[in-house]
Design a protein around this nucleic acid. Structure first.
Length: 740
DNA sequence: AACTCATGCAACCGCTCACGT
DNA sequence: TACGTGAGCGGTTGCATGAGT
């Protein structure tokens, strides 16, 4: 009942606004306002003195000429000003008209009328505060001369008149003022003037239509379309109420904000506070939708914003935050900042961070450089490892994301930007740039932990688009289409095979690698941070978005994947693959000048797997790790069993990332899972070299505190497992993860 | 000087979520 | 519980600008 009253009240208020604007519009047209003729008589007096006008018929002809001149010269200014009633546009129109009016008398008359109209309108129409603002911002400057037609258009626009009505009104006041002058000069009597005016109005309408038609032809594809589109797209238009058009007439404005609009919005927020953005338009006279207002305030106007480019420290923090959270821009900008003061990005907006990250990603991608410096990854890894080796169970506090983030992800004081842009200083990059794949392989896993952590995290779809034309289909042809779903199915059934263009030594190991397709490659947050849910989709959705043919390899590459039963690489693998196209340069020679994270990952994983094959214990460890891969989503996990659990029994398409995650926890109650937990890992020392490689991938690539905390997998206690995973869920929940 | 291209930024769009009815 | 609405978030796009040719 209460809300109904409020709705009714709102409706009444809206209707009241509409009526109020109508009154204002009528008052604008009323002759009391200085809308025209008070300053001059359109040359009628001179024409009478020159005996050009001798009778009412002559006057009628003369008025038609006046209307014609008005229509051709001034209506465009009225139109443009009414269409876009903001300060900048008005000033531009004003200057144009000032340059156009070469007749000094006309120019002075126009300025005189316009100045008066602006002054009076700003004082009278207080419901349109921007009128006053515009006037004050232009008084005393040479930014505007206050010509009449643009001022009239501005007032009309701000009073909610559409452009056609504004122009008609301008024609009307011209006509009216001309007849007022004729009456004043006793050329016609009041009654005769009224009759004549009524007759001429028909001609005026015809002229108006003609000018409107001409203008719409000229404006085709420009502003006109923008505004008309706005009108169509306006939510208010859909709602059929006045939310989008004040008084049911005016459309919402789009595009860049003007200083006047900013001033109005700031003033509104000062008075009413933030929030309730949809009412901004109603109360401030801004012709902007609530969303636009909120965005403008949040990203540009709020006082606590920090302007200017990012400092190196801020850049490091962003990298750090992204490594932990993924594309959670708003959270990066706000929530974590609140939770972890020393990680805060003060005054930075989500949009700003997002733009920075996307730009950075593109830049590094082009350079074939990793997104995450190895220091970030290694630091986190070592922190975790140290804790494990000390037999220190992580307590609840340790699972706190704050703690984790602050303790494990203190970024070393390194100029990441510099590093990233300078391959020469990156050991892992050097390896890949300067060494062949086979030689790199021989170097073992200890080469650089960072290597597995360097995969870019650009949006899958985007990654695909950017590399779409590079990849060939299975038939060797360039594939540009969207894959059919059965292709996706084939992926899981291993009917389609391929490789990264690497030579056979990697094949058998990579089959394991492929089977990690339930997870993601390092650096990806598709599963872990919930990106999979809304934007990045679940694995299959992501694949659909990815247009998987891009991942298909040429015929000549198929065998290298090993057996035909080898599933294709994970989607995120594919993402990474896209970043590092299987060009010839990335082939067995492995000397891609643009080596990307994927290649590094593949080489690294290959080394790791090759090394692990020599030790059965490593396989055991693998199996253990594999059973956790759903949660950790590392591509380096050998997770055949996991894949069977989560991909075969339950199509990945039906599983969000979080569901995969949760299913891999004891909470899920899955017996399979429990079995997995019972697999006791090898002692850390025995498998350290290999496990290090994997751990670092798990811990640092998984990009979320809960996952990073998963380094405690190796704890032997089931109780601990339960605790751990409970905490993990808590952490995920705390982070607003996708877990139900 | 003119043109092209890359880059950064601002704004919009579509979607999801929370909340109230 | 279903529905409507407002707010917020993440992805994308379009434009302005500057560097390079």
């Amino acid at each position: 009942m209460e809300s109904k009253k409020e709705i009714d009240g709102a409706k009444e208020e809206t209707a009241s606004m509409s009526y109020s604007l109508q009154w204002s519009q009528w008052q604008l047209i009323d002759s009391i306002l200085p809308t025209g003729g008070f300053a001059h008589s359109f040359g009628i007096e001179a024409a009478i003195q020159a005996r050009v006008i001798l009778n009412p018929e002559d006057f009628q002809t003369y008025v038609i000429h006046v209307l014609e001149n008005t229509g051709s010269l001034l209506l465009p200014y009225v139109y443009s000003a009414a269409m876009c009633p903001d300060l900048d546009n008005w000033r531009k129109l004003d200057r144009m008209l000032d340059a156009t009016l070469t007749n000094e008398v006309s120019r002075k008359a126009s300025v005189s009328q316009g100045s008066a109209l602006m002054r009076v309108a700003a004082a009278v129409f207080t419901e349109i505060p921007s009128l006053k603002t515009m006037r004050e911002m232009s008084l005393g400057s040479d930014m505007a001369a206050f010509h009449h037609a643009p001022v009239f258009g501005i007032v009309c626009g701000l009073l909610g008149m559409d452009s056609e009505t504004s122009q008609r009104a301008y024609m009307f006041i011209t006509l009216r003022d001309a007849f007022s002058a004729a009456t004043r000069l006793n050329l016609v009597g009041p009654l005769g003037a009224a009759v004549l005016q009524h007759q001429v109005s028909i001609a005026a309408e015809t002229m108006l239509k003609r000018h409107i038609h001409e203008m719409s032809s000229m404006m085709n594809g420009t502003e006109d379309n923008m505004w008309s589109k706005d009108r169509r797209d306006s939510p208010a238009a859909d709602e059929g109420i006045d939310g989008g058009m004040v008084g049911g007439i005016s459309p919402l404005k789009k595009g860049p904000w003007t200083s006047v609009e900013d001033a109005i919005l700031i003033d509104y927020v000062k008075k009413h506070g933030e929030g309730n953005w949809n009412s901004v338009q109603k109360h401030s006279g801004l012709f902007r939708c609530g969303k636009s207002c909120r965005l403008r305030w949040a990203n540009h106007l709020r006082p606590d914003l920090k302007k200017g480019s990012f400092t190196p420290e801020e850049e490091n923090r962003i990298i750090q935050l992204h490594a932990n959270m993924g594309n959670k821009w708003a959270r990066m900008a706000a929530e974590v900042g609140n939770l972890i003061p020393d990680l805060k990005l003060p005054g930075r907006t989500d949009n700003e961070i997002k733009n920075y990250w996307n730009t950075r990603t593109k830049r590094l991608q082009r350079a074939g450089l990793p997104l995450y410096p190895p220091e970030v990854c290694l630091q986190g890894y070592k922190m975790n490892k140290d804790g494990q080796n000390m037999g220190k169970l992580q307590t609840g506090d340790a699972h706190d994301p704050d703690m984790m983030l602050t303790e494990h992800f203190k970024i070393p004081e390194v100029e990441f930007k510099t590093l990233a842009l300078n391959p020469g200083v990156l050991p892992y990059s050097t390896d890949l740039f300067d060494a062949s794949a086979s030689s790199v392989l021989k170097q073992g896993v200890g080469l650089s932990y960072g290597q597995g952590l360097v995969l870019p995290t650009i949006h899958p779809a985007k990654r695909f688009r950017e590399s779409q034309t590079i990849f060939t289909g299975l038939d060797g042809s360039v594939s540009t289409g969207i894959p059919e779903f059965d292709q996706l199915t084939d992926y899981h059934h291993g009917k389609i095979t391929g490789n990264f263009g690497l030579s056979s030594p990697y094949g058998c190991d990579l089959s394991n690698y492929e089977q990690s397709s339930c997870g993601v490659l390092p650096g990806s947050h598709a599963i872990l941070n919930g990106n999979s849910s809304s934007s990045s989709c679940e694995p299959i959705c992501g694949a659909m978005k990815l247009e998987l043919p891009s991942l298909q390899c040429s015929e000549t590459q198929q065998d290298s994947w090993g057996t035909p039963a080898s599933p294709l690489p994970s989607l995120e693998s594919a993402d990474a693959l896209i970043q590092s196209p299987p060009t010839k340069e990335t082939n067995s020679d492995g000397q891609s000048p643009r080596s990307s994270g994927l290649l590094e990952a593949v080489l690294y994983e290959s080394r790791a797997l090759k090394h692990s094959k020599k030790s059965p214990g490593h396989q055991t460890s693998d199996a253990f790790v594999a059973n956790r891969c759903g949660a950790h989503s590392s591509p380096m996990n050998v997770c055949t069993a996991e894949w069977e659990l989560h991909a075969d029994l339950n199509s990945p398409s039906g599983h969000s990332a979080s569901s995969l995650f949760s299913e891999c926890t004891p909470i899920s109650g899955s017996s399979s899972d429990e079995q997995a937990y019972n697999v006791r890992p090898e002692p850390i020392d025995q498998v350290l070299s290999y496990v290090e490689a994997r751990e670092v991938l798990h811990q640092t690539d998984c990009n979320r505190p809960d996952v990073l905390l998963g380094s405690t997998w190796f704890a032997p206690s089931n109780k601990y497992h339960n605790d751990h995973f409970f905490q993990t869920d808590d952490v995920a929940a705390l982070l607003g993860g996708d877990q139900p």
